[in-house]
Design a protein around this nucleic acid. Structure first.
Lengths: 337, 337
DNA sequence: CATAGTCGTCGAAGCGCTTCGACACTCCTT
DNA sequence: AAGGAGTGTCGAAGCGCTTCGACGACTATG
């Protein structure tokens, strides 16, 4: 284990000089710097993280709280990877916390100085971790939007606008009866904001445009999709447009529609809210609003880093504008000229 | 920020006593212990992670290297969650490293004492991180099997046995021509061991049982599955059994078979190698060999913790025995009495 | 040419914790 | 009654780093 002191001795300078070479917090003459850097390389020196954290009260670690329940997995994974990658590019490592511990994890991390900042995913509208995060002196960034965002920094897709966009697209194509294949009932019970906001956007815009909307939650398995689909067509036989919010339900829906002899997009149009990859790999290339997982992760880290650098953040809530990409799953409503 | 010293003062004992109460490394009388514990609670004390790491040269952190490339996502996510959860139950936190940095990340973590041990996923047969891991004084556990396992601790599903099991199951049902829908070509190029070992197990057992085997890689999209399927039936029109290794190819395969009017399991049988959840949620409940992601993650952590505790590990390579669950996608070959 | 300012370096004082040896007891043992 | 063997607690010495103030050596200024 090579220490700073050994590097200093090897280079013939004091320990503090080596430290300043490393941090760049004071100017060091070129020859000295080179000598030190050479010694560092030669000895294979790596600063000890613990000592550094203790002395500077900075750990250079970002904590990321992911949900334990493994719903909408690909999005979560993509965000996590984006967070890890972006964090590294800013000199931070990422500590992975599962939601399991809940508030206790927040207390532990903020109390122990393990991490410099927290990024919290899967925020519920009335999240029990919120009061703690408020109280902590650590910067926090939420991915998702709680009910009350006062004093919080949040990043999320603008799901209300997303819903509106989907409604608009289908209305423009002449669809008059739209069914929303929602998330599993459990998601609504937990009051995860995004599901409700999407629905709200859909409802409002559909109302404005004179389109009838029917919402049904769906677990995402073939069985449940089958049931949901039957109930939808029983209740609203004239349904020609679908908005799918539950990623897992996409394949079952397409499969079942095909089996029922309903052609996409000739008989029914489908719009999905999902990552690009899912939209392009489905059996029909899906018209979709992308969930910009990578961007959300990246932005969250950038906001956290900015806060750590002491930059006052002008906007506390960053809502990413949704973009609808038209692909092969949506077209004019039947009977439209 | 409450410190150990403040707790000590509050409880009327010395700092070292508080430390021993916390660690349990020396016996403390019941009344003293209670007094200290009470002070800890009252002051809301949390030991500072950096100071602890510095003084004890233990960070209580496990590093987990996940692959950057987002292939076979659900498995990865499940392993990661299992690692995080199990680690917490042993008092460890998890540092998330992406494969992106490769060997540099290994150097950084082992050099800086950031983590006490490493768990590496997505190991290639001739992984470039291996030499470094060998040299590091940190315990390491691999999830996956490299070519040379001497001196390494590894956990993996026994993919050779998995392949053999699939071949056996189909052979027993009377299938004489089997097609293997493999992973994307890139996976083989990277020499990720599991794909090749599965194939080897399949080939050997098929050979022993007199079954013809055709292996074709597949990207997992509908287009590529379509192409792969055509080529398979062109080349071997008598194919009645499928083994699917690529999780992403499952839905496309079932969908396409249905479209071609081939019934599962009446005309063709399908056996998948995938997590249970995927097998039970597909449009046909799949006969499958489960990938025990949760167990792999858990075992990896347990091995790492055992190594940290200085326990000599009797078995260096832990191969989990595959289990084949018969569901609705496999049945007797057509024409079998 | 004295004075102020800048630059580059050093020494020392911690950061908050763990851990080792020491010490004062109490309780057996002989 | 004296010696030995635990117990329970304390003090002090670090762990390896950052950072502050100090200081000598220059350069610019009037």
């Amino acid at each position: 284990m090579v220490t700073l002191a050994e590097v200093a001795r090897h280079a013939g300078v004091s320990a503090s000089t080596v430290s300043y070479v490393l941090s760049g917090k004071r100017s060091i003459s070129a020859p000295t710097r080179e000598r030190v850097e050479h010694s560092i390389k030669e000895l294979g020196y790596h600063p000890n993280a613990g000592a550094r954290a203790l002395a500077s009260s900075r750990s250079n670690i970002l904590a990321l709280m992911v949900p334990l329940r493994t719903v909408y997995v690909p999005v979560m994974m993509e965000i996590a990877i984006a967070v890890a990658t972006t964090a590294r590019s800013h000199g931070y490592d990422v500590l992975l916390l599962t939601g399991e511990e809940g508030p206790a994890a927040v207390r532990r991390v903020t109390g122990s100085g393990l991490a410099d900042a927290m990024i919290v995913m899967d925020v519920e509208l009335e999240d029990e971790r919120l009061p703690l995060l408020h109280a902590a002196r650590q910067p926090t960034v939420l991915i998702g939007l709680p009910a009350d965002t006062v004093g919080l920094t949040c990043v999320d897709l603008d799901f209300t606008a997303t819903g509106a966009l989907c409604a608009e697209h289908l209305a423009e194509l002449g669809h008059r009866e739209i069914a929303v294949v929602g998330e599993a009932a459990a998601v609504y019970e937990r009051h995860t904001g995004f599901a409700e906001r999407t629905l709200e956007g859909l409802r409002r815009r559909a109302g404005e445009l004179g389109v009838r909307l029917l919402h049904r939650p769906c677990e995402g398995s073939y069985e449940s999709m089958d049931g949901t689909l039957s109930r939808i067509f029983d209740e609203r036989p004239g349904t020609t447009g679908f908005v799918v919010q539950n990623e897992a339900a996409i394949d079952p829906l397409l499969s079942l529609l095909r089996r029922q002899g309903r052609a996409v997009p000739e008989d029914v149009s489908v719009v999905a809210v999902c990552p690009e990859q899912v939209a392009t790999q489905a059996s029909v290339r899906l018209t979709s609003v992308a969930i910009p997982a990578e961007e959300m992760g990246r932005r969250a880290v950038e906001l956290a880093v900015a806060k750590l650098a002491g930059q006052p953040l002008e906007e506390q809530v960053t809502l990413l504008a949704p973009e609808l990409t038209v692909r092969a799953s949506s077209g004019p409503a039947p009977g439209t000229s």
